[in-house]
Amino acid sequence: MMAQKTVLIVYAHHSAGSFNAAVRDVAVEELARQGCRVIVSDLYGMNFKASATEEDITGGMKNPELFQYGEETMHAWMEGRLTDDIITEQRKVQEADLIIFQFPLYWFSFPAIMKGWIDRVLAKGFAFSLEKMYNNGIFKDKKAILSFTTGATQTMLRPDGINGDINVVLWPLQNGTLHFCGFQVLAPQIFWSPAHCPHTVRTEMLRKWQDRLKGLWVEKPLTFAPCELFDLSFQGGFLLLPEVREEVRSNPYGITVGHHLGKPLPPDNQTRAQPPEEHNTQAACRD
């Protein structure tokens, strides 16, 4: 029998009556039904501190004359000197097989309190290093997914929509944050403009989310450019290898949204798993 799966939901919304709360509740109920252990970090409910400051470290600083948050928190993590709220969240991350980030899209990004969770919890050393990043990252055996609501309609976030391509919006969130730490990033669950939808449409959105959760463990993750395509040295500038650049020269699209190489962006690169890539799959929470 496969060991029980643990899911962490990092949740950021002010209101218990919000659509985001309903989405969270559907996930909790469905995943628990599958036999998963579900942990919810309700950031507003916890009054989680968003700002990354010297207060996150107990004991003295390595360099008190020039405070560098990343370096100081890395040493504090190694020495067990981070504050209790950070340590508690890091333990949840370590235990989780899957992290769901549930939030409303604010200014094309995470809400400030969730960004603060990312800044403080995913500390250097604990979540990433230059030696362990992207597909070789620390959390390469864990899955992550962004589940969020928008104020804009879906057409407003198309390549020809007034707000621009949602794939471009998602690139720094999914690649620059989650995949950088090694997570296998599943395609996002986007709830388009629920505040402007009738009740029947919102109900159908929740039903589709529940259906997706039933097969989430066997989904293929999004495709990102592996580190092996780059010269991973300061001398080489961490640039795409010349032979790789030559190999993709005739391709109609760039490699990814970020590595577009001056070509058209690969369609749906940040919103849909791209065949025919094959990935290891997980069974449901219990066999």
Rank of each mutant, 00 (worst) to 15 (best):
A152H: 11
V26I: 11
W117S: 05
Y11C: 01
W217C: 11
I190W: 01
A12P: 04
A283T: 08
L240M: 09
W77V: 00
H260S: 15
D56R: 03
R286W: 11
W77P: 00
V121A: 02
L222F: 02
E72M: 06
K92P: 06
L173F: 09
K49W: 06
R37E: 15
R24L: 15
F110M: 13
Q34G: 11
K143H: 01
L122C: 09
N251M: 14
S193P: 03
Q90R: 04
P252V: 09
C181E: 02
A52L: 13
A144D: 03
L216W: 12
P266N: 05
F126V: 02
L170T: 06
K220N: 15
P276L: 12
G161F: 04
A144L: 03
R249G: 07
E131F: 11
R158Q: 14
N135V: 02
V244P: 04
L241R: 15
E247M: 14
Q34L: 12
A225H: 03
A152K: 07
T73D: 05
C197M: 13
L216S: 08
T73N: 08
P275L: 10
E246T: 14
F180S: 00
D97S: 10
K124E: 10
S147W: 06
N163T: 01
F183H: 07
T73E: 06
L222P: 03
T271S: 13
F48Y: 15
D56V: 02
P242S: 11
R81D: 07
G60H: 11
E277M: 09
A284H: 06
H259I: 15
N135D: 15
H279M: 11
K140T: 13
A152N: 14
M78T: 04
Y106H: 14
H196C: 05
Q174A: 07
Q282K: 09
H196E: 09
Q90L: 09
I190L: 01
T73I: 12
T271F: 07
M74T: 05
I100Y: 13
K263P: 08
P226W: 03
Q4C: 04
G237H: 12
C285V: 13
W107V: 00
